Simulated assay, not measured.
Amino acid sequence: MSPAPFVTTEWLAANLHSSSIALVDASWYMPAAKRDPAGEFLQSHLPGAVFFDIDGVADKTSDLPHMLPTPEDFARMVGALGIGSDQTIVVYDESGLFSAPRALWTFRTMGARDVRILEGGGAKWRAEGRPLESGEPQIEPRVFTPHFHPENVRSIAQMRDNLETRARKVLDARPAGRFAGTEPEPRAGIRSGHIPGSGNVPVGLLTENGLLKPASDLQALFAERGVELSQPITTSCGSGITASTLALALEVAGAKDVSVYDGSWTEWGGDASTLVEK
């Protein structure tokens, strides 16, 4: 079983300067937000953090956004960031809880032994008046030894097979209108609708403060949506970001077999040969 996925700001403050901790800012925003997370990181970030570029630590040969790189490429890129596979990797984002789960899932999929998310993210740290830094961090490269976990990720071929077998329940985290095909997709050339047979869990995972809801609340939410936590589940969204948040929520609620469809709707909806339901 994976270790508890969150650490508190108090815990991080007490362990901030430990060499056994790798602190990672994985902030990412939708293209429409027109924000520069790397530039914002240089202006201000948590002490000792390095910036993990979700779009950069990715498969550069794919036209799809931020697809998983090969384990070897991932190891090379994060090792250059000073992140070692023997460290406790603490990930945060500046939205509270938006893109950090994608980084958590990526590190876990690549075999990191211990990955956590800073509860409340950079927003909570800043609200508590804790120290910050600016500028480029001082990085000493480390060795990241990958151990790829293919069970964590699903390809389009596996998703096509699942249409026949229905061995896995597919849950889509996109807004209800996009799932139903009544609202257009934000990316040009992508059809509206959803993967046949999939369910929709677009809201309700976070508290008003941007924290993941307690396990009991999440269990109730999934029960309302007809999700059986004992069944194998694959999550999807627009491009694999919020699918990772949904996967994290399922894990906290008690699901044991959860994977992420890496290409998500950008791949499925952009492929004219796939079946689409509305």
Rank of each mutant, 00 (worst) to 15 (best):
P5G: 11
P5W: 03
T8A: 09
W11T: 06
A13Y: 00
L16K: 08
H17W: 11
H17D: 14
S18D: 13
A22R: 00
A26D: 02
A33E: 15
A33L: 14
P47D: 11
D53V: 00
D53E: 06
I54M: 05
V57I: 15
D59N: 12
S62H: 02
L64G: 04
P65N: 12
P65A: 10
H66M: 02
A75L: 06
V78F: 04
T88D: 05
S99C: 14
A100S: 15
P101W: 02
L104I: 08
L104Q: 01
L104V: 03
W105A: 06
T106N: 04
D114V: 03
R116I: 01
I117V: 15
L118W: 05
K124S: 14
E128F: 13
E128A: 08
E133I: 06
G135M: 07
E136H: 09
Q138I: 13
F144W: 10
H147S: 09
H149K: 13
H149I: 08
V153R: 06
R154W: 06
I156C: 05
A157I: 10
N162C: 08
N162K: 00
R166F: 09
R166W: 02
A167H: 12
R168I: 01
R174W: 02
F179H: 02
T182G: 15
R187W: 09
A188R: 12
A188Q: 13
G189I: 06
S192I: 14
P202E: 03
V203R: 10
L206D: 07
N209L: 11
L212S: 03
L218G: 03
L221M: 08
E224Q: 12
G226Q: 12
S230P: 04
S230D: 13
S230T: 14
Q231M: 10
T235P: 10
G240A: 13
G240C: 04
I241C: 03
A249W: 00
Y261N: 11
Y261K: 13
T266M: 12
W268E: 07
G270H: 03
A272H: 12
T274L: 14
V276Y: 04
V276H: 07
V276T: 15
